[in-house]
Design a protein around this nucleic acid. Structure first.
Length: 979
RNA sequence: GGGUGCAUAGCUCAGCGGUAGAGCACUCGCCUUACAAGCGAGGGGUCACUGGUUCGAACCCAGUUGCGCCCACCA
């Protein structure tokens, strides 16, 4: 069927790396076997065709012609090597629609991700696999996407986050949960407004030129044009999100939620408006919350200035001389004897001619500087507090751009120009007592633009966090919410238990406008979403809310809150929150604050926004350095997806992710992951070629007939499933990937498949009858089937492609998650196979040392195997090692001993005595070292007396084994020396 | 200033009381009929330093040094 139905150019997939020149000499396609007439959905039996087609053209590897049915044709001509397979493009159009194909398909010898990914993704979405059902009886599993900024494009940090979320969700879906991963984006107030303003600046315009309404319209336009980018990128990654439930924080529904929340908090007295010192960004021209300020040690100067003269002289130290223009007092510690006589008096403030009082305030540290502090209530948070305590006036000396507004010589200067100017003027008057420069001190910067933040007195809205934060802390303390890794909970408590009130008003245009109106007579009215705004004579507050206000509602606003929707009932509380530890405070804590408050009616247990918080780290480069554009060490996940495939990219990320741990990445590692995809691909190809049978359960009678390798691999599979499950539950992605990787590669591919080969070929195995072959085919199919399911959450595409080919099933996306067979554990079989591995490795070492080519058959005789558990496996061992039976004229010239078995070999040429001596000497040295350590331990009286009996016994055993080895090796060496 | 974490093979990390592990990198040999994006064999570590606890410490305790991160209103 293959040979007939496909064009010749397509046939090469079966063996594409034949050397040029050989291909033409091959026989024409042979008649096909029985499967040729079998048109059932059963997977194609590769055994029937593998050898059939050797007419491959001579080109070398890598072609990507796709073998799917015609309707999947699409842009299938990925010419050139796989690395250049090219982006498949976002969001495949509907021509690729249709459910995932269950038709048998041929597999090329190299996995080419590009075409597979776009086709499969479209198929999954169309099949509705990712669409959750609010009416389902199945337990819900909900994860809300940490909404990326609409301005953004998918960066490697998202890719990490999404890989982990997708893995969790896919696993739960396979486990039968009603799984929902809800996607969406955040309007990202400052960030988005900045982007659009930059665009305007390119046209020589500012937002004020447009006016508020027009500007906001412009942002919406921008969002319509570029806002979908991240969604198409998520499709490339394979994110199994429910696109029917996509949300945006500025959607009508979510805006209603925001307004509802504001109103409730307002009515409960948990939102207030007040004059406070806030962090002000003079570039973004808005207030910022405390956590939107990054502190860094900057070089500045510490200047000591003398205020007043003669008896009333007092020297103050400051890093901000320019603010002295706004000083309204000097403060000293109440108990400081140096200044006791000054308290209550006034001193002259230089440059201004004003006289300001000296006040006593306990906040002042007498040890620091001169023990006297200038007080600028309008431009320093501490000074503001001092001012309040002493009823001092607040003088604002700068406008919102940071420009001095005090009439006089400094008026119109920027704050950074004013500083040297004021200093120079003070110097001129002989007021400067000391200048320390450079002086390193912490300075706040706007986390959006890096501008030095200006503490500024202004009228803003705040959330009174006290009671909310208490509840947020308690929910973690009493275990309703669990944080992974647990040690990060301490950081959470530190913050939540000592949280300042949250400044939520922003002087921006892009965002949720504060729903408060003011009347001319001073009345204030907060308007709910279903109320009419007041009419004539009222003006609305111009400010918008902090972006994080709406983000904090995300777990329930996305589900229809404040309405009592079916979604809200079905999917709240969400199950897990997966995000980076860097936004623990920004987002996680605030969702706790608001979730517990808004959802309190459902009871404490159901009020929490999520049951578990899985925090991952930052993405770093191969040297563990933070990725940044300035370092030039960033990785573009889309580039990796293009070149290595989404699965390889995902595996690389997941394999690096441990709870709370940063993830180091490099191109070498993603190449390794790509290789792993290919390894699975080829293992499956082998299985298909050999009639692997993934259908049906093994009966008890079948189990009784299983070979030792079959029992071994089933035993290992069960253990690996159990380990993987346990690791997933703890969010140990790295370890789970590692367990599966080693099982797949080291055990399944390297040993099981090799052991299965002779059985499947029925070569040289007396016991391998038809039944044995059938059983092995079934075990092979079963293990591969389960393995593909296990790794599917992390590598969805390649597993889907292989699993459907292997099983004929509809899709692994909706296949059952494996469960560890309770009775599969088989320590006896494991012990035998491990022994077999050691024997085989020992002989391989001999062969390698002797330079015997892997393909060269070597006659060998086994002695001592009859009494060994390895006895039934001699044929397997011979097959693995290419050892033939001792034929006529067998004259062994070397012997290898291991596992109680002696293998005499006839290498047919003189053996390399030097190499053999070296090998034996090395083994001898190892045995001697081993013996020595054991001997030393055992000769210690206290060890023998105090150590557990089992440990002592083990040492004794080790010593005995080592001593036997030494004797044996010495004998061999002596024999080798003799002529 | 207060927390907190980390120091194990060239790199990134796992191991956390009983004689050192993985991936990648490296060396040698192989196109062995699933895979050269592969196969086989191998080299490489006084587990930061100093003490202590213990029969026994990479692992527990104390201190030292060096990195890192978080928080912070000391002018």
């Amino acid at each position: 069927m293959i040979a007939k139905d496909f064009p010749p150019s397509a046939r090469k997939i079966l063996r594409d790396h034949e050397r040029p020149g050989e291909a033409g000499a091959r026989a024409p396609p042979q008649a096909l076997g029985t499967a040729a007439t079998d048109r059932s959905p059963r997977p194609l039996d590769f055994a029937d065709v593998t050898t059939a087609d050797h007419t491959a053209p001579a080109e070398h590897s890598g072609p990507a012609e796709h073998f799917g049915p015609a309707e999947h044709a699409g842009p299938a001509e990925h010419a050139g090597p796989a690395e250049h397979a090219g982006p498949a493009g976002p969001a495949r159009p509907a021509e690729h629609a249709g459910p995932p194909s269950a038709e048998p398909r041929q597999l090329p010898p190299q996995y080419v991700p590009g075409e597979v990914e776009s086709r499969r993704y479209a198929g999954w979405v169309d099949a509705g696999y990712f669409t959750a059902d609010a009416a389902s009886d199945a337990p819900a599993f909900t994860i809300m996407i940490p909404p990326p900024n609409v301005t953004g494009s998918l960066h490697i940090g998202h890719a990490l986050d999404h890989t982990l979320i997708d893995a969790l969700t896919r696993r739960r879906r396979m486990q039968g949960y009603n799984a929902l991963w809800l996607p969406g984006t955040d309007h990202a107030g400052i960030a988005t407004q900045n982007v659009v303003e930059r665009e305007l600046a390119g046209e020589g315009l500012s937002r004020h030129d447009l006016g508020r309404e027009e500007f906001v319209h412009r942002v919406w336009q921008w969002k319509a044009t570029y806002g979908g980018k991240i969604g198409s990128q998520m499709r490339r990654l394979g994110d199994g999100v429910d696109w029917t439930r996509e949300r945006f924080t500025m959607d009508d529904g979510l805006s209603r939620a925001v307004q509802t929340m504001f109103k409730r908090l307002f009515d409960d007295g948990l939102i207030y408006r007040a004059d406070r010192i806030i962090n002000w960004c003079p570039r973004c021209m808005t207030a910022l919350s405390d956590i939107e300020v990054d502190h860094s040690d900057d070089e500045g100067e510490l200047v000591s200035v003398r205020y007043g003269d003669g008896d009333t002289a007092v020297v103050v130290a400051t890093t901000r001389v320019e603010t002295m223009l706004g000083d309204t007092a000097v403060a000293v510690h109440p108990d400081d004897p140096r200044y006791a006589s000054l308290v209550g008096k006034t001193v002259e403030l230089p440059l201004t001619g004003r006289r300001i009082p000296v006040v006593a305030d306990p906040h002042v540290d007498p040890e620091f500087g001169t023990g006297a502090v200038k007080v600028t209530p309008a431009h320093d948070p501490d000074d503001f507090e001092i001012g309040r305590r002493h009823d001092l006036p607040s003088l604002t000396i700068m406008d919102e751009r940071g420009v001095i507004t005090v009439a006089g010589p400094f008026e119109g200067l920027d704050r950074f120009e004013a500083r040297p100017a004021v200093l120079a003027a003070l110097r001129e008057q002989g007021r400067v007592e000391k200048e320390i420069r450079p002086y390193l001190h912490a300075v706040g910067h706007c986390d959006r633009c890096g501008t030095t933040v200006e503490p500024r007195l202004s009228l803003q809205w705040f959330v009174k966090v006290g009671p909310l934060a208490k509840a947020a802390g308690d929910a973690v303390r009493d275990g309703r919410v669990r944080i992974f890794p647990a040690q990060l909970a301490a950081r959470y408590f530190d913050w939540v238990d000592d949280m300042h009130d949250w400044c939520i008003s922003r002087q921006l245009w892009w965002g949720h406008r504060i729903p408060v109106w003011y009347a001319e007579d001073g009345q204030v009215r907060c308007v709910g979403p279903d109320e009419e705004p007041p009419g004539e004579g009222w003006t609305r507050d111009p400010d918008v809310l902090d972006t994080w206000f709406s983000s904090a509602l995300w777990p329930f606003s996305t589900l229809g809150w404040p309405d009592d929707t079916a979604d809200l009932r079905a999917f709240y509380p969400t199950s897990v929150l997966v995000t980076g530890y860097d936004i623990l405070f920004f987002w996680v804590a605030r969702m706790m604050l608001f979730g517990l408050y808004a959802m309190a009616a459902g009871g404490a247990e159901r009020a929490v926004p999520f049951r578990q918080v899985a925090l991952h780290g930052l993405v770093r480069d191969a040297q563990g350095k933070k990725m940044s554009k300035s370092r030039g060490n960033t990785v573009d996940p889309l580039d990796w997806i293009d070149r290595f495939g989404a699965d390889a990219t995902r595996f690389t990320l997941a394999r690096g992710a441990s709870p709370g741990g940063d993830v180091a990445l490099s191109e070498e590692w993603v190449a390794g992951a790509r290789n792993f995809c290919n390894k699975l691909w080829n293992a499956a190809r082998f299985a298909l070629m050999n009639g692997a049978d993934a259908g049906g359960e093994l009966s008890a009678a079948d189990r009784a007939e299983l070979s030792v390798p079959d029992r071994w691999i089933l035993s290992r599979l069960a253990a690996v499933i159990a380990e993987t499950d346990a690791l997933f539950e703890e969010f140990e992605f790295a370890k789970a990937c590692d367990v599966i990787y080693h099982f797949a590669w080291d055990e399944f591919c390297d040993w099981y498949l090799e052991l299965a080969k002779p059985v499947l070929a029925s070569k040289g195995l007396a016991s391998a009858g038809e039944a044995a072959v059938g059983l092995t085919r079934r075990v092979l199919g079963h293990v591969l089937d389960q393995l593909l399911r296990l790794i599917h959450p992390v590598m969805p595409f390649v597993t889907e492609e292989l699993w459907t080919a292997l099983t004929g099933g509809e899709s692994v996306v909706v296949a059952d998650w494996p469960t560890a067979a309770a009775d599969a554990a088989d320590p006896a079989a494991e012990a035998v196979v491990e022994s077999l591995m050691r024997l085989v490795t020992g002989i391989r070492r001999f062969r390698a040392d002797q330079g015997l080519r892997p393909a060269q058959p070597v006659p060998a005789a086994f002695t001592g195997i009859a009494d060994s558990p390895l006895a039934p496996h001699e044929a397997s061992i011979r097959a693995l090692l290419r050892l033939t039976g001792p034929a006529d004229g067998f004259s062994p010239n070397a012997a290898v001993q291991a596992e109680g078995v002696t293998v005499e070999l006839d290498t047919s040429s003189a053996i390399d005595v030097v190499a053999e001596r070296r090998r034996l000497a090395k083994e001898l040295a190892a045995a001697q070292a081993d013996a020595e350590v054991s001997q030393r331990k055992l000769s210690s009286q206290s060890f023998v007396e105090k150590a557990p009996a089992a440990v002592v016994a083990k040492s004794r055993e080790r010593l005995a084994t080592a001593q036997a080895e030494i004797a044996r090796l010495e004998e061999r060496l002596a024999a080798l020396a003799a002529p």
